[in-house]
Every structure is written in C-alpha cells, then in structure tokens.
C-alpha cells in the first residue's frame, strides 16, 4: 500500500483509502446504531413501541449526503483514470502479445522475449493484443490492468519508479493454465537497460 513502484499507486490507493474511510465510518455508525437500538429497545425493557412513520427531513439528509459523497468518489476515480489513459507521446513502446498461456514482449528493435525489462523513471507504453482468447495484463504492484482481446488494439502506460522485480499475471480467465500465465517485469537503471538491450540484440543477431 502506498509504495512508489509506479506513478499510479497514489491515485489508486488514494481513492481506495478515501472510500474505505467513509465506508468504515458509515459501517460503524450503522452497526453501532443497530446494536444500541436492539439493546435499548428490546422487548423486556421496552414493551410498548412507538409508531414513528418517518421523517422527511431525515430522508432528505440521508439522500443528499450520500449523493454528494458518491459524486465525490466518482470524480476522484475518474480523475485518476484519465491519467491512466493519457500516455505521453515520448513513451517507450513495447508490443505485448497474449496467447494461451504465455506473454510475448516485442521491443522497438524487433527483439521478442517472454519477460519484460524496462528502464526506471521512463514512461512505458504497452500495446496489448491477444491472438486467441481474452486475457488480461495485470501488474498488481503497479495497480494497472488491461484486457488483451483478439482484433482489438488496447494499451496501457506507466512509469516504473522503483528498481526491482514484479509479477505479471493474467487476470481474465483463459482456460487450463490460466493460473500459470505468469511473467516478470524487471525495472532497471537506464545504463543496465541499454547494456542488456545491446547484449540481447547481439545474441539475437548471431
């Protein structure tokens, strides 16, 4: 929670904590009221009920306040999502092909490998497509996900902000080995990335 692994974590975890906070408050309020009423007005202590049919002021209050809160939650979520769709023009583009049950990553120089290596602090744009059934590209640590669908060009982008190795999972059910459609993303320094790219190109060209 609230790590710095990608540029979207603050957005996503922020909305989560915002809604969680409001929800917990209301949940506690509702539950505590229920428990208090059940004890205070139990039949032994309170054999005679009072028939209160309603209260329009209360109804207005508990319609308006949740509406305001809900619209606030909507706006916060939408605001973060807009960032997720606005990939910078200079982003480093990698093509992702999903197939049962494997990920292929093709770099601008034509090299294709089965795990992802990206330089730190540089925007990366992944163009995602499937060649068989629906899959979904998911990096939990980065809070990003996009479905891979045949005949449809999808993309997502992110800035990796911490060095390390993270899991790539398939999130859309795709059959027998769906649970094993794993890969890794390695976030490295630009120097390491260039060196790795050079070695890889040489290896492939041999």
């Amino acid at each position: 929670m609230l790590t710095n692994a990608s540029n979207f974590i603050k957005e996503v975890d922020g909305v989560f904590l915002f809604i969680l906070g409001i929800s917990l408050l209301l949940l506690i309020m509702i539950t505590v009221l229920m428990v208090i009423f059940v004890f205070k007005y139990n039949r032994k202590k309170n054999p005679k009920p009072r028939n209160i049919k309603g209260n329009t002021t209360l109804e207005i209050i508990w319609t308006v306040i949740p509406t305001v809160l809900a619209v606030g939650m909507f706006y916060y979520g939408w605001y973060g999502y807009k960032k997720m769709t606005a990939a910078p023009k200079d982003a480093y583009e990698i093509n992702v092909i999903a197939k049962m049950w494997k990920w292929d990553f093709t770099y601008p120089n034509g090299v294709t490998i089965d795990s992802l290596v990206v330089p730190i602090n540089k925007p990366v744009k992944l163009n995602i497509k499937s060649i068989d059934v629906n899959h979904s590209f998911f990096i939990p640590a980065f809070r990003i996900k996009k479905d891979a669908i045949p005949n449809k060009d999808n993309y997502l982008w992110f800035i990796p902000q911490e060095k390390g190795v993270y899991d790539i999972l398939c999130a859309e059910y795709c059959g027998l080995r769906h649970a094993y459609m794993y890969s890794k993303i390695y976030v490295v320094h630009q120097d390491e990335f260039d060196e790795w790219m050079k070695k890889l190109s040489v290896k492939i060209n041999q």
Binding site: F16, I19, Y76, G77, S136, R143, I144
Partner: peptide, 13 residues
Amino acid sequence: MQGALSLNIHIHD
C-alpha cells in the same frame, strides 16, 4: 470501490 474507475482497474477480476 469498484465503481471508482482508477480503483476498478486494479481490483477488476
């Protein structure tokens, strides 16, 4: 929580 777009992307599926 799932209705919020940015958060939905993470917790979907």
